[in-house]
Amino acid sequence: MSSKVKLATIWLDGCSGCHMSFLDMDERLIELSERIEYVSGPYIDRKFQDYPEDVDICLVEGSVSNEEDLHKVCIIRERSKKIISFGDCAVTGNVSAMRNIFGPKECLAHSYEELSDEDSIKEPIDIPKLLESVHAVHEVIDVDYFLPGCPPPSDAIFYVINEVLEGREPNPSHLTRFGK
């Protein structure tokens, strides 16, 4: 068991499409499971507090948009050997970052006040505060590999994970691109 490579995934500000596409690897997941141990992420019932100290590979879906995301990426960077930006939101900010054109205040006002039927809007409590701007993951922490796509096709995901497992530098440009 311990000889297996420890893989984690994490879901920040994204639509979960990348995690769906990961599942589209279908039977290749079985192939992968012989070499990796999935230790943390949305597929299993384990809290982020229990993110292991010695993760080998972590796939990050989504951009860094609020204080919670920021807190989490700093921790996974410390606890993971290789970090892969997983999908366009992580790589470029993508749709999540479109609010950067307007800033969080204007964006919230438009979404929750102007477009709302409610007369009075309550101050939000107990939810993480939005950052001033949405960041691609590599703008916040060092990222080892990039896997663009919206979502990245499962072939590209398999290719990149396989290359990293084999100790090679992946170049997925023949399998995916921004917006794919």
Binding site: D88, N94, V95, A97, M98, I101, C150, R177, F178, G179
Partner: peptide
């Protein structure tokens, strides 16, 4: 500029 390929 704002090249958000996914929604272009």
């Amino acid at each position: 500029r704002n090249h958000t390929c996914a929604v272009c």
